Computed example of a mutant assay.
Amino acid sequence: MRTLGTFIFVRLVPMLLACVPVAADGPVRPNHDYVVVSSHRCRATDGWRQVVGALAAKHDAKMLFFDESPSELLPALQRLRPRMIGVVAMPDEAGRDRVGAFNRTFRRIIDDPWLDARWGLVTGAAWADAMEVVRATTPLIVRRLMANTPVPFGPVADGVYFDEGVAGRRMERTNGGEPVEVIGDIEIVDDFVAAFNDDPP
Rank of each mutant, 00 (worst) to 15 (best):
G124Y: 05
R143P: 02
R143I: 01
G124M: 00
I85D: 00
V20R: 13
D33Q: 14
D185L: 06
F192V: 08
D67S: 07
L12P: 02
I109G: 05
G120C: 00
G176D: 07
G159L: 05
A130K: 03
G154P: 02
K62C: 12
E68H: 15
G124K: 02
I109H: 03
N175A: 15
Y34P: 05
C42G: 13
E181R: 05
L17I: 04
L16C: 13
L115D: 07
P70S: 08
M1Y: 13
V182A: 01
A94I: 02
D92Q: 14
V88L: 06
T6I: 12
G154R: 08
F106C: 05
V22D: 00
Y34V: 14
A44L: 14
L77K: 06
V13C: 11
P200C: 12
R79G: 08
V52F: 04
F106L: 06
R81P: 01
F9P: 07
R96F: 13
F153P: 01
G168I: 00
V13T: 15
I109F: 01
A136M: 13
N197R: 12
T138V: 15
A195E: 10
R11N: 09
E132P: 11
M131S: 04
D129S: 04
R83N: 04
V35C: 01
A195I: 03
N103E: 14
L145H: 10
V189R: 14
V189Q: 13
I141V: 12
D191W: 07
A117N: 07
P14S: 09
L16G: 14
G154T: 04
A56D: 03
A128R: 12
R144A: 07
W114M: 07
R43T: 02
R118Q: 06
G86I: 01
V36P: 10
L12G: 08
E178Q: 15
T123K: 01
